[in-house]
Amino acid sequence: MSLKEQQNLLARLYTDSDLREKFFAEPDKIGFDFNLTRREIAEIVEIAPQELDFFAESLFWKRLREAEKFIPLTVKILGCDFPPLFRQFSQTFNPQTVRKHLEDALEFCRFLQKGEVSEIALNVALFERTKIEFFGYGKRLAFCKLAFEIEPFLADNRTENLKRKQKFAVWIKLGNKTRHFYI
């Protein structure tokens, strides 16, 4: 059954940069944790580290590019902070459903709520997360409580002069028609 254990380790190495670093520093220690023999560990160590790194990086960027399609406003407001934040997030979450990119986008918005991003960014992420829950998962009603009037940002992506004002963004499906409004 060595291939199974090797694949368990490889799948983690491809998706977890911290583990990858530890493995190349102490391959035996990590390999034994995955129930591999010395020979099986050696077979993985023989893979050129730069090839493994490049493959893992390509997976990360592919994942990021797919997820960002669902949350364009969050990506826009985070700017250059988006890739490092998504990298942190990707270490903590592995999507399990067939709609993995949607799941990633949704969970990333949740992940942001725990981090240190601006309040406006949190509001934009909350807005998109609720929108994904409504459209992506076929809900008939979804709403979120916002601390800012974010309509100007939705219109022209400008964050200057956004007014602090509590509002609910609401999506509702009545028959085949969808309505979106603020209260």
């Binding site: 199974k4 694949q7 998706t15 390509s58 997976l59 399990q96």
Partner: peptide, 22 residues
């Protein structure tokens, strides 16, 4: 290819070693 193992979904198509076991 393989795309998952040990509860981890790799997210893309990953190669296997070309062995009799594979």
């Amino acid at each position: 290819c393989f795309t998952r193992s040990g509860g981890v979904k790799i997210g893309h198509l990953a190669p296997v070693p070309y062995t009799d076991e594979s």
